[in-house]
């Protein structure tokens, strides 16, 4: 197949630090291969900026394999760009045409303040996990895996929920900046397994309280989060979280 390259105009959000207000700046990039990833195209742009003695654009990235959840660009009105079930690092330039203008913004949510350019502070997610997204175990010899029978459907649903990479695209897409899809994935993957059962009641209550404290909005079940999630976390996890919350509230002993 013939190799294609393209010239593009990029409108990128530039912001010096968390305290300043930012603005869009336009850049031209030339001879971008359609086989490049979106982040590689940004690398090209940054090299160009460095050669021009300009400040390169700050953006988050790590594995570039679609599994770490670090990349976080809002591209042309959608977190992680136009492709479905995809992260920014796995978005390739063949998604665009020669001559396109691409607008790139950081995640927008008060709970994700912009640190610089396209980098946002997502430590609020870490604090939600610290509030209960774990199981407490006394370590010792590993037990035989078959000693804990687990229903196949529950194991599948748990694994599907555990796919969440905590990138924050759900928050970025939600009109309420709600973190419910993320939270529900974390609650579900533990609530469905016997290992997560002893702490399931306190887990959901503490994690919901922490989510509110961090300044995320409430869920209104619109489904925008599910549509943009790179790991296709199902909206049904939110209903499961609601069930966990309701049951924990009703059966709380104190």
């Amino acid at each position: 197949m013939a190799h294609k390259s393209m010239n593009l105009t990029l409108k990128v959000w530039r912001q010096k630090n968390a305290k300043t207000t930012g603005q869009f700046e336009s850049y031209q990039v030339k001879n971008i291969s359609e086989e490049m990833s979106f982040l590689e195209m940004f690398d090209v742009l940054n090299e160009q900026l460095v050669q021009e003695n300009k400040e390169p654009i700050a953006f988050d990235h790590d594995c570039r394999e679609g599994i770490c959840g670090m990349c976080s660009m809002y591209i042309d009105g959608k977190p992680h760009g136009p492709w479905q079930a995809n992260t920014t690092c796995q978005l390739h330039m063949r998604a665009f045409k020669d001559g396109d203008t691409i607008t790139v913004e950081p995640w927008r949510a008060n709970a994700f303040p912009v640190l610089k350019d396209l980098v946002v502070d997502r430590t609020s997610f870490d604090r939600i996990i610290q509030a209960g997204g774990y199981v407490s175990v006394n370590t010792g010899n590993a037990v035989d895996g078959n000693s804990l029978p687990i229903n196949k459907n529950a194991a599948d649903d748990s694994f599907a929920a555990a796919m969440c990479i905590g990138c924050g695209a759900c928050v970025a897409a939600c009109k309420n900046s709600s973190a419910m899809l993320f939270l529900s994935a974390k609650v579900s993957h533990l609530a469905l397994l016997p290992q997560g059962d002893p702490e399931r009641s306190t887990r959901v209550m503490n994690m919901v309280a922490q989510m509110d404290k961090e300044g995320f909005g409430a869920c209104t079940n619109t489904g925008a989060c599910e549509a943009t999630c790179p790991k296709e976390i199902s909206l049904s996890n939110i209903a499961r979280l609601n069930q966990e919350y309701l049951l924990s509230s009703l059966t709380a002993s104190n």
Binding site: G77, K78, E105, R108, S178
Partner: peptide, 21 residues
Amino acid sequence: LANRSKRAVNYAIPYGNKGSK
């Protein structure tokens, strides 16, 4: 009102109808 206050800076390109009615 609470939900509307959670995003102080809006997007230049709104998210629109993707996945929601």
